[in-house]
């Protein structure tokens, strides 16, 4: 087995072991922390699809966390707490927003793409801030978590934890399949050499746009989970620094690897947690750390820990 895969499975097994460990230590806080880690791992994995494999540097992925989160929050606000419906709307609405943003931004590349995705996310952020009906700046409280009848009770923290873990595993596996399918080969080819890709007869645009939409939809699901996790929604779900953090998770973990987003989300969020317990000014350490990672550890953790893996 490739070392990257071993690393990934090891991390996922560790996630699975957290609830009993937290129970044994009587520290329910860990359950909360790692659930958050896994939700961001889903978001980072979705970004990795377009950023790592597709070469599209989206600086606006928090938009879909917000759209997915607000889809749940707004439905709940109007008394609809059917989880199937909420999550379906979260995924669907994120896909639609990704289609709208993507159809404009995917035509561009490089710096334009970065600025446009950032700008549209900021637009959604301001939209969230200005709609008083849904709490505006103050946010929206989720009265209760998404309801799945007798099947699942997300009010049970351990059960909710394992639901998130199951979704994470599913997402990581699905993206792994996707990037190795015909479709995945095309978006990776377009990233590797666009002129050659056109010369052999592909039009990259529809494939890139489809990847962008899929990525947005998955991140929308992460948003629905995050809303349930925090039980409280604010426009800060879509804050531009969120987009930056998700992007950093992908790079820190290792771009274009299956394990990367999971490792990156784990290390970044745990580091933030450690640093913030130590000083309120933890960002003064995190910022330069980020610069150093970019300058000296470009391949990320997966690259450092598993040098033999390529497109796993």
């Amino acid at each position: 087995m490739k070392r990257g895969t071993t690393l990934l499975i090891g991390t996922l097994l560790l996630f699975a072991a957290i609830p009993p460990i937290a129970g044994w230590l009587n520290e329910p806080f860990y359950l909360d922390l790692f659930r958050r880690v896994m939700i961001f791992a889903i978001a980072a994995a979705s970004l990795n699809l377009i950023l790592g494999y597709g070469g599209m540097v989206s600086f606006g992925h928090a938009a879909y966390l917000g759209v997915g989160g607000y889809a749940v929050g707004i439905l709940a606000h109007y008394g609809i707490d059917n989880g199937y419906l909420q999550w379906a709307v979260a995924i669907g609405a994120s896909a639609v927003v990704a289609l709208a943003i993507g159809s404009i931004s995917v035509r561009t590349s490089g710096i334009y793409f970065i600025m446009i995705t950032l700008a549209f996310t900021q637009m959604l952020y301001y939209l969230g801030v200005s709609i008083e009906e849904f709490g505006g700046d103050d946010g929206l409280r989720l009265a209760r978590r998404s309801q799945f009848g007798d099947l699942l009770d997300l009010a049970n923290p351990t059960l909710f934890y394992y639901v998130v873990l199951a979704i994470l595993v599913l997402v990581v596996f699905a993206i792994h399949r996707l990037v190795n399918s015909r479709f995945g080969m095309v978006i990776r080819a377009a990233r590797s050499n666009e002129a050659r890709t056109q010369a052999i007869g592909f039009s990259p645009y529809p494939y890139r746009l489809a990847a962008f939409v899929i990525s947005g939809a998955i991140c929308g699901l992460a948003g629905a989970l995050l809303a349930n996790h925090t039980s409280f929604l604010t426009p800060d779900f879509m804050h531009w620094t969120r987009s930056g953090e998700i992007m950093f998770m992908v790079i820190l973990g290792g771009i274009a690897t299956s394990a990367g987003p999971v490792l990156g989300a784990s290390v970044l969020l745990l580091l933030e947690d450690l640093l913030s317990a130590w000083t309120v000014h933890w960002q003064i350490i995190l910022g330069p750390f980020l610069v150093l990672v970019v300058l000296f550890a470009r391949k990320g953790l997966a690259g450092l820990l598993a040098r033999d893996e390529r497109h796993g």
């Binding site: 950023l51 540097v57 600086f59 490089g110 710096i111 970065i114 620094t241 930056g244 992007m247 950093f248 790079i251 000014h281 933890w282 960002q283 003064i284 995190l286 910022g287 330069p288 750390f289 980020l290 610069v291 990672v293 970019v294 300058l295 470009r298």
Partner: peptide
Amino acid sequence: RTLYERDHLDQVLATFGLILFFNEL
């Protein structure tokens, strides 16, 4: 200075790190 030859992704991330640093400073 060391970032001029890097791709835009590296530049975005490194300068994002600088923002966190300056805001906190």
